[in-house]
Design a protein around this nucleic acid. Sequence first.
DNA 1: GTGTTATGTCAACCGTCCTGACCTAATTGC
DNA 2: GCAATTAGGTCAGGACGGTTGACATAACAC
Lengths: 175, 175
Amino acid sequence: MSGPNDLNNDDIASAPVYQAPEPDEDLDFPLVELFFFAYRDFIADADGMLEEYGFGRAHHRVLHFVNRRPGMVVAELLDILRITKQSLGPVLRQLVESGHLVQIAGPEDRRQRLLYPTQKGRNLSIQLTQMQSRRIKGAIEGIKNSDRESIRDFLFGMIEPDERELVNGLMEQDK
Amino acid sequence: MSGPNDLNNDDIASAPVYQAPEPDEDLDFPLVELFFFAYRDFIADADGMLEEYGFGRAHHRVLHFVNRRPGMVVAELLDILRITKQSLGPVLRQLVESGHLVQIAGPEDRRQRLLYPTQKGRNLSIQLTQMQSRRIKGAIEGIKNSDRESIRDFLFGMIEPDERELVNGLMEQDK
DNA sequence: GTGTTATGTCAACCGTCCTGACCTAATTGC
DNA sequence: GCAATTAGGTCAGGACGGTTGACATAACAC
């Protein structure tokens, strides 16, 4: 039944697979990989500028959303970023110490800390968004059927359905 | 010239900015934010499945590219992922120990370690890519002007120009 | 045989997240 | 008015995924 040259179970399990995956309509390799590379380079734009301040990506995200929605409270920020207050803490402190953000006690509920950018924080945030917008603009310009709405719809469709309401709220100002 | 109620320089620097940024054609907030949220949820799909194996995103990326290009050498992987061999080391070791990958000495140059998936590694990689492809498919279906080429072109345009050759090479198989 | 290349490994460090526990101040409910 | 809850902050300890620098080994190139 089984000769000396047969593979036993261990051999089969550890055998290399030499072929690349077959084309399959359930496997969209091009778009999966392009999304990965595109995001990598999209993020890299900002990283360089942030490094000058000793900031990382966490600082970038906080700076961005506070600028977008001045007067945001800490709880809202935690909700958007989906991190814990323990991990937000140091990032927020550094941004306040560096003079990019200020915290103001809430006028009605004085437990709340309303978050505002300073002019310095606004300037940095705008600069970062400009870099990223420039890359997006360049990418759209290179397309034949340059349909900005299609791309917006595509990206929106990539968001988890439960989350779309939250994101829509954030976008209410401009579309 | 300056009365007691005027702001001095320190006050100006630390003054909160109350207004949201003005609309500006150089600031594409919607697409910048949608790209952020879309990538976050795109990645989250896989995270859950990876957790069952005690793997993180680094494992995912290695698993993906080795499956895409069986026989890849370590140096190629480092080049694609843009990380150091010191940080790749433990990830690779874990994937070999768990039986998802195997390393085989290069047939010509025996210093090289050719990386292959096992059937187990292939299965996991396919499963992960299927999840992500499903989300992309859903996003495309929701668009009126459902132009797959536009989206591919857009994402390609987002990649750093110097990098596009490398990515194109990776895609040579299917577009 | 010497120099270079492909890979691996040790050590120390950083950023960004986590959980759990605890604190203050302010608001709310009864 | 007092107790419970809420908003926020903080300390401790740990995990992961990355970094740099230095060094080791094996194999190839000339």
